[in-house]
């Protein structure tokens, strides 16, 4: 057993349907001499307490095993630890795995073994870290940026604050998590002319603004999805912590940065790239 590795398994992995998958992973990790101590998340067990109790001076790598929900349960405190984070996705949803270039299942062990480590930024919503994004799907909330200007939606729309990016209507929209900036993406709605169609439509071109500090403000209480975790309130402080997390990433992510930028819209905005996601068993 390699004492520098700690594995945090999500509780859904105790399900019999994952027995073979988990056994395969453990065999692969043993072959690669990366098998380590295993901790299991449970419904009434604090993920933070579990991880803290397992991390000592010898531990250099904490590996999250599960799906994107498992990351949601742990990412909010992992930047506080002086360790490198790995991720083995074994089930859907695995959008974050896509963004990090990590394949689902046993192949992820090879990514872990290659140990290509990137230092990435973490966003902060009030005092909670987030990796991917904060999203308000239908809102009239505005954004105050760097105490200098406000961004508001005339008729409402969707507002996202991205660090690593996310999946929107089956379209992968990655952001640069190494630029020390958050990216606000606003998809406004405009009223239609008098037709039989729905009264409002979403405009195709999003507003994109890069910033370091900001505030989501709303007259009415709003719900914000932070890495798929829901918080509600009238006001949320936003900031970025550059280089907060050391993360093991895959070859797919390295390919992204080597590709040229995809431009082509009439006003110079960047075209969304369509990515087909692998189908798999939902957790």
């Amino acid at each position: 057993m390699n004492s520098s590795y700690v594995y945090i398994y999500d509780d859904f992995l105790t399900d019999r349907s994952f027995e073979r998958e988990v056994a395969g992973l453990e065999t692969e990790l043993s072959t690669l001499e990366m098998a380590g101590q295993v901790g299991r998340l449970a419904l009434f067990r604090s993920a933070r307490d579990l991880v803290m109790s397992m991390v000592d001076d010898q531990v250099t790598t904490v590996v999250i095993v599960g799906n994107d929900s498992t990351l949601d349960k742990t990412m909010w405190f992992l930047p506080d630890l002086d360790v490198t984070i790995g991720y083995i996705p074994v089930a859907q949803p695995s959008v974050v795995a896509e963004l990090l270039g990590i394949p689902v299942g046993r192949q992820a062990c090879e990514v872990l073994a290659a140990r290509y480590t990137e230092t990435i930024d973490m966003g902060k919503l009030d005092e909670r870290f987030f990796l991917t994004e904060v999203s308000l799907p239908a809102t009239l909330a505005g954004l105050e940026v760097d105490d200098r200007y406000t961004v508001s939606l005339r008729y409402g729309g969707a507002l996202s604050i991205r660090n690593l990016g996310g999946l929107h209507e089956k379209v992968m929209d990655p952001a640069d998590a190494q630029d020390g900036l958050l990216e606000a993406v606003v998809l406004p709605e405009i009223p239609r002319e008098k037709t039989l169609l729905p009264r409002r439509k979403t405009l195709a071109d999003p507003t994109r603004i890069l910033f370091e500090r900001g505030k989501i403000i709303s007259k009415d209480p709003v719900e914000a999805y932070v890495d798929n975790h829901v918080v509600s309130g009238f006001e949320f402080q936003l900031s970025i912590v550059p280089g907060a997390l050391k993360l093991i990433t895959g070859r797919g992510r390295r390919r992204q940065s080597e590709q040229p930028l995809q431009r082509g819209r009439k006003n110079g905005t960047l075209r969304h790239a369509r990515v087909s996601l692998p189908r798999g068993k939902d957790a």
Partner: peptide, 26 residues
């Protein structure tokens, strides 16, 4: 795994139709 889209690297800001910005926009 399919190839991933390119990550935006140039600092480009877009204020699209339907959005209002007020203040010192830098």
């Amino acid at each position: 795994m399919p190839p991933l889209p390119a990550v935006r690297t140039s600092a480009q800001t877009v204020v699209a139709q339907g959005v209002r910005v007020e203040g010192d926009f830098q």
